[in-house]
């Protein structure tokens, strides 16, 4: 777990742990249609010392530049496109991005589908802080 003091600055373009030849994958993406959940996740993850980019819809995320995305914190229940539908598309375009799926009702069907798509972890709402931050720490270079 990363402990920091104060709020990290987002003006630095690159992280020290830059991988050779590639742009820094140091941004945690959050996709959730609920304003409060999204804002609070961003707040927590930023306080924990990570850079965050938040999206209120799946389409918005898929249209963004994903080269800096280290990992994805994804809500399942969203109108238009669900978390699993997003994950399915992402697996075809950016299969390397690790995904944490958060759902209010982790039914066996959702868990099975998540496993099928190779989603790293499925969390039930409300998720524990440690589970979120451990996931991010594990998948951020």
């Amino acid at each position: 777990m990363v402990m920091v003091s104060g709020i990290p600055s987002f003006t630095e373009p690159f992280n020290e742990d830059e991988c050779m030849g590639e742009v820094n994958r140091d941004i945690v993406a959050i996709v959730d249609d609920d304003d409060a959940v999204r804002d609070s996740l961003r707040f927590l993850v930023e306080v924990a010392g990570h850079k965050v980019e938040a999206f209120s819809a799946a389409a918005e995320f898929l249209a963004a530049d994903l080269r800096h995305i280290a990992c994805l914190v994804l809500d399942q229940h969203m109108p238009a496109m669900t978390g699993l539908q997003l994950a399915e598309q992402l697996r075809t375009t950016n299969p390397a991005i690790p995904i944490m799926l958060i759902t209010g009702s982790p039914s066996p069907a959702i868990v099975a589908r998540a496993n099928g798509l190779g989603i790293e972890i499925v969390l039930e709402k409300p998720p524990a802080e440690a589970d979120i931050l451990n996931f991010i720490a594990a998948h951020k270079p």
């Binding site: 609920d34 409060a36 959940v37 609070s40 707040f43 927590l44 709402k125 409300p126 998720p127 802080e129």
Partner: peptide
């Protein structure tokens, strides 16, 4: 109800 509970947990942990 899970939505505000999730948000509350996140803010308090932060």
């Amino acid at each position: 109800v899970n939505q505000p509970l999730t948000a509350i947990g996140n803010y308090l942990r932060a």
